[in-house]
Amino acid sequence: MKDVIHFYGMDFRWLNVLDLLLVVFLVIQLYRLLKGSLAFNIFLGLLVVYAVYFLVRFLEMPILSNILQNFINVGIIAIIIIFQPEIRKFLLVLGKKTPLSKDSFLTKLFLPDKFKSYREEEHVINEIVTAVSHLANRNVGALIIIATTYRVKFDSAASITIDSNVSARLIECIFEKGSPLHDGALIVVGHRILAAKVILPVSDNPDLPTRVGLRHRSAVGITEHSDNLAIVVSEERGTISYAEDGTLTMDVSPEDLKSKLYTLLVDGYA
């Protein structure tokens, strides 16, 4: 069997074809990952630069080839900096698919029995849903971040450390309009409230509905860069929404929210 393909006077090995197919596959996956974000335009610009580079090399234009080659060499570092949030999101998605992730068969098979008691998780879920329901009924705005795999990075100088058990009454008091802590987000890590009045990154996703405010955009922003769940109560409409993996799900019922929290905090290790 021949391992060389002849095409218009040029010879290609099967590995060259496989190499090309893999590059096309990666470009398509990058397109799907970046579509709808501002980084997508940068991605298109980089594709144009690479296309021009290969064209001038094919046409044997040495000056332009050298200039573009130097630009590409330096551009690798710039790409890592510019696409840091997208790279982080890609690695988070990839980590969920590994054999040792919390949803994998191996983790479920060898998880010790002592970790299969979910009384604390159920208490946290009930307290959060109760607080969110009361806040929504009274049109009190709120933003609660449920950290799952690791602690959320935030500016500790601008936030207030709480380190308390999760309590519906405490959550409601924090977000009362007269409370000095009601602005910003509340961070829940494990079974404890870690901090309040936390400033989060705001999403620049142009596909978000124009009617959503700063809380909703902050919820999407933090989930674009981390593996967490963000719960939002709208002050204007008294509705409940949540964001995960950069996607906003709006106008959910307390029962839907409880089901989502069970899926996140309980079923993931069931």
Rank of each mutant, 00 (worst) to 15 (best):
A142K: 10
G75N: 08
K35P: 01
S104F: 05
F83I: 01
D11K: 14
I77A: 15
H225G: 00
I231P: 09
D103K: 04
R13C: 12
N137S: 15
K177M: 13
L181C: 07
A78L: 14
S253F: 10
G190C: 12
S164L: 09
P112K: 03
S65C: 04
F90K: 01
T210G: 00
S104T: 05
F58D: 05
V202G: 01
G36D: 01
F58A: 06
F110P: 09
G36T: 00
T223Q: 01
E127A: 06
A168R: 11
F154I: 11
Y150Q: 15
S226W: 00
V124R: 02
L111E: 09
S234E: 13
N126K: 09
A131V: 10
A243S: 14
V129I: 09
I231L: 12
A131C: 11
I199E: 15
Y53R: 01
E60F: 13
L38V: 03
A158V: 13
T130F: 05
E176P: 09
Y150A: 15
M250C: 04
N73G: 11
L181G: 06
G45T: 05
L59K: 14
R13L: 11
Y31I: 04
E236A: 12
T247R: 01
L261K: 11
L26E: 14
L170N: 05
A243G: 12
G9H: 09
P206L: 00
I145G: 10
N137V: 07
T223F: 05
I5S: 01
A142E: 10
R237W: 08
T239A: 09
D113I: 07
D256E: 15
D251K: 02
E121R: 00
L100W: 11
I222R: 03
I199C: 09
R217Y: 03
K108M: 08
F105I: 13
G95Q: 02
L261A: 12
G45V: 04
D3M: 12
P180Q: 03
L100Q: 01
G268N: 07
T161Q: 11
S164E: 07
R151K: 14
H225A: 02
L181P: 11
S156K: 15
I28G: 07
D3G: 14
L229A: 09
Y118M: 02
V74T: 01
P62C: 03
S179Y: 10
I63F: 15
I128A: 07
Y150S: 15
I5H: 06
F58K: 10
Y262I: 14
L229Q: 07
D155F: 07
T130Y: 04
N139P: 08
N165M: 03
T263P: 03
P254A: 08
L186A: 10
D3C: 11
A196M: 09
S253R: 06
V232L: 10
R57I: 08
M1I: 04
V48N: 06
P112T: 03
D267C: 11
T249D: 02
R215Q: 13
A270T: 14
F40E: 01
D204R: 02
I193P: 05
L92A: 00
I28Q: 11
E172I: 14
K97F: 05
A185S: 13
F154D: 12
L208G: 03
R217T: 04
S37C: 00
Y53H: 07
T98F: 04
V252G: 06
L22W: 13
R169V: 11
